[in-house]
Design a protein around this nucleic acid. Sequence first.
DNA 1: ATGTTC
Length: 482
Amino acid sequence: MKVEKIDDNIYEISPHKKNNFDMKVPVHIYANDYILNKIKQDRTLDQISNVATLKGIRKHAIALSDAHQGYGFCIGGVAGTDASDGMVSPGGVGYDINCGVRLLRTNLYESDVRKIIPDLLNSIYRNIPSGLGSEGKININYTDLENLVDNGLNWALENGYALEKDLEHCEENGFLKDADSSLVSKKAKQRGLGQVGSLGSGNHFLEIQKVDKIYNKDIAKKLGIHEEKQVTVMVHTGSRAFGHQVCTDSLRMVERAMNKYGIKVPDRELACVPADTKEAQNYLSQMACAANFGFNNRQLITHWIREVFENFFKKDVDELDMNLIYGVCHNILKKEEHQINGKKVKLNIHRKGATRAFPPNHPEIPQDYKSIGQPALIPGTMGSASYLCVGKQKAMDLSFGSTAHGAGRVMSRRAADRKYPARNVMDDLESKGIYIKAASMKVIAEEAPGAYKDVDAVVQVSHDLGIVEKVARFVPIGVVKG
DNA sequence: ATGTTC
């Protein structure tokens, strides 16, 4: 497979025949030498080239600077398919539907939290169920859950778990309208029922961070970030077993439909059906339910974090300025309008391990952020930095308005578990002044910083390409891992 | 990511 450098930080794989399937568009890879070398070490380029063979794909298939191998599609991938009859693929969203990140600010400083960080984290840990199979602490029945997934964050708002302004600062206002819970299996509902408001496991985390560096003071100020050492809180989780089951169910449905319609793809994991089939629409409605689960999951966790801070600092949310800066989705499919060769087209944008990064004045941006662009959050792995960026016009040209979603693995969980003893990882973090509270030692090894790419390099590529602008960098003080 | 193997 020939990978050709066509510009600074841009590599291309030209369309060619691949296992008897024609690539319909080129692959574009956004990387520097270090990242491209990492990306070449797994099946990423093979997978994104397969994506380029899908019927109805437009312009280019994209591997972002955090790309690594996933199920069917690579993670750190973006593909836009014709919204009328192009392919819709559950693997292009992934199992953790609407995994995402939100960033809360505070008016506290490192000196306010440093000494009490173990107590603060323990308290958060007690208040927010974490770990594999963890169950939320609210009691809801099937009807409640159906309301929750059908109405997104409006459910949280009505039930006293959200502020009006939380919704305004959330991608899609925390509500995908295509949701139809009557299409979701009883099994998905049953698995999700106890998990609303739980952190989960793997790379999901909750971090108390401090501002490490501000790159653009004016934009930072508009986002409520004022100086170094200001404390922020970041939440990274998704739709738990509910979304996982929706993906499993949908893959099975789509595989059956492919047999029925006689659709062939170069990799079985790329199961897909055209957008104008009932199966594609069924998947999109179920995916919307899982997305709405994810929005509410992060919202409940936010609510409980606020409670803990209120108790600790004896001040309310307003006094602490614990406002949501923004919340983004990582794994999601959206019907969006884009321009290709000067023509407006409607596309189903699959973002898998990719963050929407719309430029200033885009209609989807909240009113108070219109002039600065959509905040795009790019978390690192535990012990490394996270970034707050804003989307730029170039993102519309290069990546369907998207950027990377995180550092991106370079090593499988199993390999990391073998290579990094959890004790050593914890000692390393503590020597850097990072306190960690984890549900298991295994997760610490699997999520060792060395198992990921360098997030600074990942973000720098997006910044240098001009698809986002760096606004601020954050480093953790304390981490809760599921 | 996930009651980590339908």
